[in-house]
Design a protein around this nucleic acid. Structure first.
Lengths: 225, 225
DNA sequence: AACCGTTAACTGGTATACCAGATCACATAT
DNA sequence: ATATGTGATCTGGTATACCAGTTAACGGTT
């Protein structure tokens, strides 16, 4: 989409990965000069990369005050999860109607992978498998615009979503929900698939309190900025 | 969100307006040097503006080949309308549950404005009123992230959406649909509001053929790019 | 007349130099 | 000791110069 120069695009990829995987945390400063010498390029492509990331919301730039990895308010967190749940629900609903048999077989395999990894309590490995499962459903909706849109919002939420897995018992629950979603998609029950996915992704009630309780300092903006 | 320098931001606003209102049409070239001298700034802020616009998808940049106002394929058009319908449906659904009485009064007034303008067959005036009506519903969902997201997609579709109004009879139908949506929101019937809004926005079946038939040359990419 | 290759002009991509606002430390006054 | 004001410094914002790929025009050849 955003087709900048090669150097800038490489930087976008690297920085995006670092932010999504948590190497760079919300609030971390992104100094243009430091980045430019660290990557051996001039400030120009660095600036382009930062602007692209600002466009997708992953970083925030204040004029004359620099760029930081985006941190959001509690309100925004709730808003974004609300939208995320709906986008994923739409993916699941469409996937139930459009996903070819062969892709469903693959989805079954991915669900099995999640299931296998749940035992080992290796949070990172499980997280990756979980991402693959969800992305397979995005792809299954056969709407690449929706797929991209969904991934963008998910990336934006990644730093916070990752935290959920550290809640005891969450992985087990999550896995059984996968099973039900998979069944609905497999049988072509679009409404059920959408409803289950919405609930699977939504963060509300107790779950919201739990999440907020384990968000580290700095991940959320103070009430007065 | 994307907070660049002042000059660049001004350019983003101007160019975005020109694209959304149709002054700049899909396929039009956006030459960096021409723009820079036309606006009396250097190429740097021009480039920043173009990159921001590329990020939201309004323009497309090919390395070493320049920037043009984005044109999309028929497939993408269908995909984007599908997502648009769902986003607006979500707005309507949430608005039915959350919109304060005072704002609903305002929404009623806006619907009346559309109704009044429908007679005069002034397509542009009606279009503006129509936008106001829809935006009031976006605001009514009380989720500013969803509101922004929805506006972004709408802007992206604006060049094509505007064409729909030139279909004879469309304005009248559209207006009566507004009435029904308004009623659903006013009575707090979330499901109905969402369903009606989805149908109101969706472009499918005959309506899709009609739209495609009046899209000017150049608005859609040829099958082989 | 049609085809192909060379080349010149155009346009973006990158680097660098310069300017201006924001921050922070230090000194001074209360 | 604290508060405030001033200036050095840090960091972005803007302009410009230079480099490299792409395109298209022109001329020569067949």
């Amino acid at each position: 989409m955003a087709q900048n120069g090669k150097l800038a695009n490489d930087l976008v990829q690297k920085l995006e990965r670092d932010i999504v995987t948590g190497v760079l945390k919300p609030g971390d400063k992104l100094d243009e000069r430091s980045l430019s010498e660290r990557f051996g390029v001039s400030r120009t492509p660095v600036r382009e990369a930062l602007q692209t990331l600002a466009g997708s919301g992953l970083v925030a730039t204040m004029p004359r005050r620099g760029t930081i990895v985006a941190s959001i308010t509690v309100g925004e967190l709730i808003e974004m999860f609300e939208v995320m749940a709906e986008l994923e629900a739409m993916c699941a609903r469409l996937a139930a109607r459009r996903m070819p048999r062969a892709d469903i077989e693959n989805l079954i395999a991915l669900a099995g992978e999640c299931d296998a990894l749940q035992e080992h309590s290796d949070a990172d490995a499980y997280y990756e498998a979980n991402v693959s499962f969800h992305e397979a459903i995005y792809a299954g909706c056969r709407n690449s615009f929706l797929e991209r849109q969904t991934k963008t919002v998910r990336n934006r939420l990644a730093p916070y979503r990752r935290l959920q897995l550290h809640r005891p018992g969450r992985v087990k629950t999550s896995n059984s929900e996968h099973e039900d979603i998979l069944n609905a998609i497999s049988t072509g029950d679009a409404d059920t698939a959408g409803r289950l996915m919405r609930q699977h992704v939504a963060v509300q009630g107790e779950a919201l309190n739990d999440l907020l309780a384990i968000v580290p300092r700095g991940y959320l903006e103070p009430l007065a900025g």
